[in-house]
Every structure is written in C-alpha cells, then in structure tokens.
Design a protein around this nucleic acid. Structure first.
Lengths: 127, 127
DNA sequence: TTGACATATGCCGATATAGGAATATGATTC
DNA sequence: GAATCATATTCCTATATCGGCATATGTCAA
C-alpha cells in the first residue's frame, strides 16, 4: 500500500512545499489562478492541480468571478495542524529549559575554570 | 517526479498517520521498540521503518540500552511545523469573527422573517 | 560458542503521487 | 457563432512511498 491519498487530509496536502507556498501566498487576500502563476512562477496546470488538492482538503476557498476563479487560503483548515503541533508545545518548552540549564551549568564551570581552555569534551547522553 | 522524499523534512514525515501516532506515544517518555509494537499493535518492521524516518527528520531521539533501543519524541523537531501553522493564526481568528458576523446576521434575519420559511436560496459567493 | 532476544534492513508488489505537454471546458467579447 | 481568454483535466512517465515477509545485524545469557 502506498501513502494515504494526498487529497484526503490536510497533513498530506501540506507535505508538498509548493502547496505550502501557495497557502502563504493566498493568506492575505484572494488571487486569480493566473496571478498565482505569475506570482510564484509555476506552470498553470501545476497550479490548478495544487489548488484542486488544497480545495479538496478544505485549505483554500474558491469564488467565481466572471471567467476567473479567485482563491484564498482558508485558515480554518490549517487549524487542526496547529492544534496537533500544540500538543507538543509543553514538551519543547521543557526541553528548552533543560538546554538552558545545561548552558547555565556550562557557563558556571567556565567561570570557575576561568581561562583554563576547557574544550567541552563532556558529550551528554542526548545523542 | 514523485512526491518529495519523506525522509527529507518534518512535513512529509508527519503526513503519515501512523507516524503521528508514534510521535504522540513517545512524547511523554522513552519506549523501546517492542513497547511501541505492543502499545500500538503494529508489526515490528513497520515500527522500525517509521522510527527510521522520524529519526532522520529529527522528530525522535534514540538511546541505546543494552540490546534495546529507547526512542523518544524530540519536540523541538515539531516546532517548525507549529511555527508554520502559527503564521495563519491571525487569519483564522479573523475568519472566525467573520463567520460569527454571518451567523449573527442570519439569526437576525431569521428573527425578522419569523416563521416565513425562508429556504436560504441565496447562495453566498463563498462557494 | 550457541541460542535467545531486540531491532534493523532488504526485497516485493500495489499504489499514489508530481511534473510536463496537450487538450478540454467555460466564460466573455465581438 | 467565432475567437479569445481563464482555468481544469487527461495522459504519460518516473519515482517514492507503505505494508508484509524474510532475513540480517547486534546484544546478552548460559
């Protein structure tokens, strides 16, 4: 079995760098497809295909205006990603404080050793 | 060209649901591979392969302990994702207020029209 | 050393891409 | 209706998966 269909959820949709680029581009205001093509220097069919994926996953909204179609990022669709990542926020703050502790300890020992040129050979067990 | 290598960046790594599951599982503390296998009911080779991807993208850390290897989520690796999604935070708060406005407007018109059974034929231009 | 345990890797087949080129659909204007 | 502009879709090929299975590597214990 291959990877889950990219069209099924937001996580897969944003795995593609170009689509992330498009999402940022369309965050501020609506743009027509050709404006995206010109703005990002990507082939039109490619843009259309990416927009299709983004639309199917609810990451962009589309509005018809005469013969053009105006796309805009639907930030709500990105929220689940944000929320998923937020689950780990408390962990990385913990890790950060650990790093800070280490840095302070190092600074302390450096101060103690003054200018004895301690070459920091102590490899911690954190890989 | 196919999709970018999953091993290259965190965005691709978390596109796989099983890997997200593993990351959450390993968030609190270290687990050996077999503990993951038992905990998540996934084949051992599959777990090892997912761990390989997660390790290559810096999303988990590994530590050897005798014949077992202990894995743990490296929350720092998830931070770029969080930061990317955060870019859109202000937009979805905006959109939320817009949605709220619309809901209030609708409620108002409904109250005005009382029970005239307005079938909401006015397709808004937002698709 | 041999065997048991823990984990990783290699090979396979099926599938889902992404990009490029050509073309189809759709709307507007003359 | 014909020509034109704007966008979408289709067909193609190369590649990157994922899962399952077998097997290799690595570590400890008797």
């Amino acid at each position: 079995m291959a990877r889950a269909a990219t069209t099924s959820d937001a996580f897969n949709a944003i795995a593609e760098p170009r689509r992330r680029q498009i999402l940022l581009f369309l965050a501020d205001r609506e743009y027509s497809v050709n404006e995206i093509v010109d703005g990002l220097r990507v082939d039109q069919p490619s843009v259309s295909k990416h927009l299709r994926v983004l639309r199917d996953t609810g990451l962009v909204r589309m509005r018809c205006n005469g013969r053009q179609k105006l796309y805009r990022t639907n930030a709500e669709g990105i929220r689940p990603l944000y929320e998923w990542a937020s689950e780990f926020e408390r962990y990385w703050t913990h890790q950060l404080s650990r790093v800070k502790d280490r840095a302070e300890k190092k600074a302390a020992s450096r101060a103690a050793a003054s200018d004895s040129n301690s070459r920091n050979h102590s490899r911690n067990q954190e890989e």
